[in-house]
């Protein structure tokens, strides 16, 4: 394999792994469920994308590459839907996002303070 492709591949794998760990730290560190979704978003986009792109370059151009691209596609399509379903479930279940501002003119959205 070309040496430049090798370097690019390991670079992508390294960046992807780093973003996976950062996303994991975010899921642990951030204060409530709505903010933790952003940490999970990092895992789902940059972490998975980086690691899988690195693996794609490692594989060369074979059927393995296309399967990896399919996995990236599936995850990029499904993760926002799953996150949105979870956010709706959390709102419906009475968890209110803690924040500085409340929705400006959303009627019926309770005034949300940090206590749930």
């Amino acid at each position: 394999m070309d040496i430049a492709l090798e370097i690019l591949s390991w670079g992508l794998l390294f960046v992807g792994s780093a973003f996976l760990v950062i996303g994991g730290i975010g899921v642990v560190r951030l204060p409530d469920v709505f903010t933790r979704m952003h940490g999970a978003g990092i895992i789902d986009t940059m972490g998975v994308g980086g690691v899988m792109s690195g693996l794609m370059i490692q594989a060369g151009f074979t059927i393995v590459t296309i399967k990896l691209a399919l996995i990236i596609g599936f995850i990029l399509y499904t993760s926002p839907t799953a996150t949105h379903a979870l956010a709706r479930a959390a709102l419906h279940g009475g968890v209110r996002p803690r924040g500085d501002e409340t929705p400006e003119d959303e009627s019926g959205q309770g005034n949300s303070s940090s206590k749930t």
Binding site: F34, G41, M46, P97
Partner: peptide, 9 residues
């Protein structure tokens, strides 16, 4: 939602 930092709820 896909962009980290913002989530449509």
């Amino acid at each position: 939602t896909l962009t980290p930092g913002t989530v449509t709820i």
